[in-house]
């Protein structure tokens, strides 16, 4: 190839590059305007705050699947969690299971009959050291520094499901298909999800932001308690101090924030 042609091609390439950078820079500049000096973006006044939200579940007060049902219903309805009939596609934020499934390592050969029959409520543990957050390649799931909730950005999730493999509690679900047709009653205040993203319990962050406690706690008639793990005067700390509590798979070092009174 003769050198002048090569030279012209190089020049064309460089100028094309220069031309395309302009719109990109403009787009960034515009985003600056949306947040510019005359605009304030802030938290609401009623927001509930904590260093690390935690939950205590008094399993002695929840005797049967039927007693769990209102809690699960409350959660799944306000968060638009679909009811899929195909077990493979199932989506669960909060559900009941047996003691030996909730605590596979701790199931003794002989165990109190009543405990064996009691349903155990399981959900995302909002671990202090969450392996799912370590795994996510896009920061679509992360631990919030303001309250320790393991949160998800459904806009950013690419659906690689690495977080699902990383979670030792099976807390995460994936939208194997469009969930919308399977939502019985849509809560218009909360978004649904689209196919191809992962979801899980968010400790009702949207309710905490407006001064309400999580929905499951609210309807639990005192079986569930919610509060700041690092506030010695909080209800959860009080319960942990006065009762013997266990956590799921504590040996893995993820530091779950859901405590169980058995």
């Amino acid at each position: 190839m003769d050198s002048s042609r090569r030279r012209i091609l190089q020049l064309l390439g460089i100028s094309a590059l220069a031309l395309t950078t302009r719109p990109v820079l403009d787009a960034f500049a515009k985003e600056q305007q949306a947040t510019g000096a005359d605009v304030i973006i802030k938290e609401g006044d009623k927001v509930l705050k904590a260093r690390q939200w935690a939950m205590v579940i008094d399993t002695r007060k929840l005797h049967s699947e039927a007693e769990l049902e209102p809690l699960i219903e409350a959660c799944h309805t306000i968060h638009n969690v679909p009811k899929l009939l195909n077990k493979n596609h199932e989506i669960k934020w909060l559900w009941g299971t047996h003691y030996h499934n909730a605590f596979p390592g701790k199931a003794a050969r002989f165990i109190a009959e009543e405990v064996e029959q009691r349903p155990f409520l399981v959900l995302c543990n909002h671990c202090e050291n969450p392996p799912c957050v370590r795994a996510c390649p896009t920061k679509a799931t992360w631990k919030r520094d303001n309250d320790g909730i393991v949160f998800m950005d459904f806009h950013r999730c690419i659906g690689c499901r690495f977080c699902m493999a990383a979670c030792p509690f099976g807390a995460r679900s994936f939208n194997y298909r469009d969930p919308r047709p399977f939502i019985q009653e849509t809560n218009k205040k909360f978004p649904t999800r689209m196919k191809g993203v992962v979801e899980k319990c968010n400790f009702c962050a949207e309710r905490l932001a407006v001064g309400q406690i999580p929905a499951c706690v609210e309807v639990s008639k005192g079986a569930l308690a919610f509060g700041d793990l690092y506030d010695p005067k909080s209800e959860v700390r009080e319960l942990i101090r006065t009762h013997f509590t266990i956590r799921r798979k504590q040996t893995l070092g993820t530091e779950p924030c859901v405590y169980y009174i058995v």
Binding site: I41, K42, E43, G44, V47, D147, A205, A209
Partner: peptide, 11 residues
């Protein structure tokens, strides 16, 4: 979503 700030005060 990412900064948990929900209130926008316009100019």
């Amino acid at each position: 979503v990412r900064e948990s700030k929900r209130i926008y005060v316009n100019p």
